[in-house]
Computed example of a mutant assay.
Amino acid sequence: MSYVSLGLLAALWWVFTNSSWSKIRSPADQRAFADSLRPLPLLPARLVSPVALLVTTTELGLVLGTGWSMVVLTAGWPAARPVGALVLAVTFLLLTGLTTGVILAVHHETGARCACFGATPQPLGWRHVTRNTILLAMTIAAGVTVAVTRPHPLPLAGALISVAAGWTSALILVRLDDLVDLFLPTPATRPGPSTRHRP
């Protein structure tokens, strides 16, 4: 089960690394992310910038947290359980909030658009809800496996295979829009408010 935990943590690390980098690589990208939150129902305009900063900071924290969890899990340190539990709890809360925002945007047909790691902006839709739901399921599964597995050192070869498997699955999720457009191209839609950089 430790290999499963490691693979799931590796997948989450890759997702949040890509997501946070898309927000911090330039001031314009951070402003674009904040602007992407404006069409969301129930979010007052005065809270847009603070929420954008909170999400960005939390994602950066999760990059560090999941990375450290992978290290202590591979080393078999006793801290693997509490560290992993804390990181995954924060991950669950963040993903729940983001998924709720996407569901509200889709339900209210706000016209918000999201690049969501893809090459071109896409209207927020149920594919993005599905992706976030998968990430939530991965977070829960990781939490369960971390809780029920007694920490013990993992052989390097097995750990590397688990990390590679996690990164491969994360790459599919990160490039979901591109894959869907490749196999199920959709007609061009009228431009809407930009909603970039949200997982």
Rank of each mutant, 00 (worst) to 15 (best):
R31T: 14
W68P: 00
P121A: 12
V90Q: 07
G76A: 10
F117L: 03
L184K: 10
L42V: 15
L42S: 13
G192M: 07
I140V: 15
G118Q: 05
L54F: 11
T91M: 15
L156K: 04
W21D: 07
R46L: 14
A11K: 11
P27C: 04
G65I: 00
L104Y: 03
A159W: 06
L40Q: 06
D29H: 05
G67V: 11
V90M: 05
T100H: 09
T74P: 01
T17G: 06
G125Q: 05
W126H: 11
S162N: 07
V15W: 00
H128V: 12
R190A: 12
Q30Y: 08
T189L: 14
H152K: 09
R81D: 00
R190I: 03
E59C: 01
R175M: 07
T100Y: 11
P121V: 08
S49E: 15
P121H: 02
F16Q: 04
D35Q: 01
T100W: 14
A165R: 04
D29L: 06
W167V: 10
H152N: 08
P41M: 06
A28V: 10
L95R: 07
T74A: 05
A147K: 13
P41A: 10
V174Y: 06
C116F: 02
T186K: 12
F33I: 12
G84D: 07
I134V: 15
L8E: 03
A112M: 14
I134S: 12
A32G: 11
F117M: 01
V55H: 05
P44A: 14
P121I: 09
A89L: 09
R196Y: 10
L42K: 08
A188Y: 00
A147H: 15
P78Y: 15
V163M: 12
V146K: 02
I161E: 04
G143R: 01
Q30H: 13
A75S: 07
T99R: 08
V72G: 01
W126M: 13
F16W: 05
G118W: 03
T57K: 07
T139W: 05
H107I: 15
A75Y: 04
S169E: 14
P41Q: 00
T56A: 06
L98M: 13
R127S: 14
G7K: 03
R190H: 01
G97V: 08
S19V: 10
G61W: 02
P82H: 08
G61T: 13
R38G: 03
V174G: 02
F16K: 10
G76E: 05
G101K: 06
I140W: 14
T57G: 04
V102S: 10
W77P: 04
